[in-house]
């Protein structure tokens, strides 16, 4: 997504999802180039917590059922 700077996205991914800097950069590039990346998988409640956190950081996350 254009409005978020790459360093900010990388830092949020690194901090919130406890990724290494390299892992976070790979995800950031995936989002930038493909428009999306799967950041987290699990039960509905846990996913809602993650999506809410991303919205808190100004990053657009969505919930999706597995297999879709």
């Amino acid at each position: 997504m254009t409005p978020s700077t790459s360093w900010y996205v990388t830092h949020v991914f690194q901090t919130y999802f406890a990724l290494t800097r390299d892992q976070a950069e790979v995800k950031m590039r995936e989002v930038h180039e493909q428009g999306r990346a799967v950041m987290s998988t699990g039960g509905r409640e846990r996913m809602e917590v993650d999506v809410q956190a991303m919205h808190g950081y100004g990053l657009w996350a969505t919930l999706q059922r597995s297999g879709e």
Binding site: H55, A61, L63
Partner: peptide, 16 residues
């Protein structure tokens, strides 16, 4: 600033 949590499922998006 306050985006939808689902692109296609309004029920999920509204509840969230």
């Amino acid at each position: 600033v306050l985006p939808s949590a689902s692109r296609d499922d309004h029920e999920i998006a509204d509840e969230f």
